[in-house]
Structures are given as structure tokens and as C-alpha cells.
Design a binder for these strands. Structure first.
Lengths: 170, 170
DNA sequence: AATTTACGTCAGCCATATTGACATATTTCT
DNA sequence: AGAAATATGTCAATATGGCTGACGTAAATT
């Protein structure tokens, strides 16, 4: 199972050369993410959806009543790109829109029951993969994984991510 | 810094409901990967290249003399998709091809000096981000992160990944 | 009243992925 | 030797999901 070196990208203590790049982590990130997204992709294609729909549905489902602008900031894509997939999700009854009660320019987004159901299905797949991974590792690994991934995020984005993960309500 | 819960997706020890999905890890993976790829993307756009070129160049550089088929298996894309980006990389002198010495049908791939230079630049960016992340965490975190990411990979893909990461020579 | 904000839309563009069919050279199998 | 399998390349057509820039509208803010 683990000929993964316990440590390797080491020291360079007194000396000259720059440390060797952590190729293993670079590549593991690629492969892990590739497979992590592959389960949902399969299900999504049954619906004629792609990864973009997944992301939108996921965040809308997790943050009921979120605004379009919020979604744009999270996904870091343009209005137009979002527009297309969001429209599909709305047209096909996975997401609904509702004018903001206080600021009626806003369109608050909600997953419909149908949307929640699909979101759950996709989340289940990803949960299972994560659970399988963690089951193979010592207790504290989940916390370390969280910390590591968190530290990989752009410094100026971390606050937003924390708020999101905490399941902030507006 | 860390209102990341040390543990949360817990137990369900005796009871009925399925465990709550690890939304935090699911979303952290998304954000970490999003930002992890954003640094290289910036540099690549200077060259008129995209993420696809990065992946090809990366693996060719790391595995000199690899075959086209190997690359297809790693990237899990089609010949045609690969063909385009590979051709560009070859035409612009970042990658060279050479017939296999034993089986002359094969075209073995190598990064040129120019290709190595670009690969190094891209790797540096990713290395720095990883180093920054690890610097903020306790010693053993790198090992745990490796293990976690490794366990996230499809079971039937792990052998191949291990071979790759180990820097296997054919 | 003027400005800003939230959102949508139109037109066009580009990168990257797909499938299926077919061509060529080379190696391997019978 | 001949047939089959393999490694690669290529063509045509198509889809997805990004982008930019411009413009429009409704509602809120100043």
C-alpha cells in the first residue's frame, strides 16, 4: 500500500541548491481531483449536465437563497458562463429563483426538491470516496487534510471559504 | 486561522441516520484545486497555452521518453484531444518526438531544454504554494496529505500513480 | 435627478473535450 | 508468408464551458 515516502522534499539545510519540488504532492493533487470529479460526472451525463451544473447546484443547495453575485465570486467565472448553466438548471426545474424580499433586484437561488435530490446523489458519491479514503488512515488525518487544503487556498480567499464551509446564513 | 472544525463528520454510532456528508472536505478540495491551478494558468497564457498543455508538458518532462499511449492513460483524454496540444508543443519546440529504438511505431516524447525551462517555471509556482501550506502545519502533515490524496485515487489506478510518482524509468 | 448596483442578454470568440471512421507503419501471431 | 493486432496520426463533426465587450432594465442609493 504505502511506498509513499513519509518525507522527501526535505531540508537543504546549510547548502546551495533549491529544494526539490514536491512532485508527489503536485501529481497526487492532479490524480485525486481527477478521480474525485469522475463519479459525479458519470451521473451528471445521465441528465445532460456537466461539471459546471454540478458546481452551481452544489453551492445553491448548500446556501439556499444565495445571490447570483455570490455564486460568481465563488466559482470565479463570468456572468455569461454562469447564465447558461443556471438557466438550464432553472428551466429543467432543479433550481428556482425568487426576488430578494428586501432588495428586489436580487434573484435569490434555491434548489427545488428535484434539485436537492440530485445534489444529494452527487454528494453521496463524493462522500463515499472521502469516507473510504479516511477509513484507511489514522483518526487525525481528516483534520490534517482539512488544514492542508485550507492552506492551499489563496490567502485573500480564505475568509470567504471559511464562511461558506461554516454554512453561513445571510 | 482555524475555525476549521478538528472533527465534525462524526460517528452515527448506534443510531439510524446516515452520517452527514463531509461538505467541508468536498468544498476545500474544490477551492484548493481552483487556486492550485490558477498560478500556472497565468504563466501559460503568456505562451498562448492552456491547462492541457501544462499537463502534457509536466508529465513528459517528468517521464522522458514516455509514449503517447502512456500519456493518454494518465490524462484520460482522447487521442484527438491530446493530438492538438501535443502538436502545438512540438511545433513550438517545447517537446520533441523520437521513434522508439526497439519498436519503431512508438513516438517517444521528451521535453526540450526550452520545455524543461517552462516546466520548471510552472512547477516552481506550485511548489511554492505547497511549501507555504506545509510551512503553516506540523511536520507530519505532508505525509498525511500524501496518504489522503493517494487514498482518494481510484483503487485500480493507484499502482500506475505510484509508479509515476516514484519516477519510474521504462 | 443622477448614479450605482444586480441582473440579464446578445453576439462572437476560443480552448478543450467528445465520437467515429479511416490510414499507415510496424510488430506479432499462426 | 499472411493475418491480426498495435501505435500513432488524421479528418470531420459536435458539445461544453470558458471568455470579452456592449447594452438594457429595474431597483436602490446618494
Amino acid at each position: 500500500m504505502s511506498s509513499l515516502r513519509p518525507d522527501a522534499g526535505a531540508s537543504d539545510a546549510g547548502g546551495g541548491e533549491p529544494p526539490a519540488p514536491p512532485y508527489d504532492l503536485i501529481e497526487l493533487l492532479f490524480f485525486a481531483y481527477r478521480d474525485f470529479t469522475s463519479d459525479p460526472d458519470t451521473v451528471l451525463s445521465e441528465y445532460g449536465f456537466g461539471r459546471a451544473h454540478h458546481r452551481v447546484l452544489h453551492f445553491v443547495n448548500r446556501n439556499p437563497g444565495m445571490r447570483v453575485t455570490d455564486l460568481l465570486a465563488i466559482l470565479k467565472i463570468t456572468k455569461q458562463s454562469l447564465g447558461r448553466v443556471l438557466k438550464q438548471l432553472v428551466d429543467e426545474g432543479f433550481v428556482m429563483q425568487e426576488p430578494g424580499p428586501v432588495d428586489r433586484r436580487e434573484r435569490l437561488l434555491f434548489a427545488t426538491p428535484k434539485g436537492m435530490e440530485l445534489a444529494r446523489r452527487l454528494t453521496d458519491l463524493q462522500s463515499r470516496r472521502i469516507a473510504r479514503a479516511l477509513a484507511a488512515l489514522p483518526e487525525e488525518s481528516a483534520a490534517v487534510a482539512r488544514q492542508f487544503l485550507y492552506e492551499m487556498i489563496d490567502v485573500d480567499q480564505r475568509k470567504d471559504v471559511l464562511r461558506l464551509i461554516a454554512g453561513e446564513r445571510r
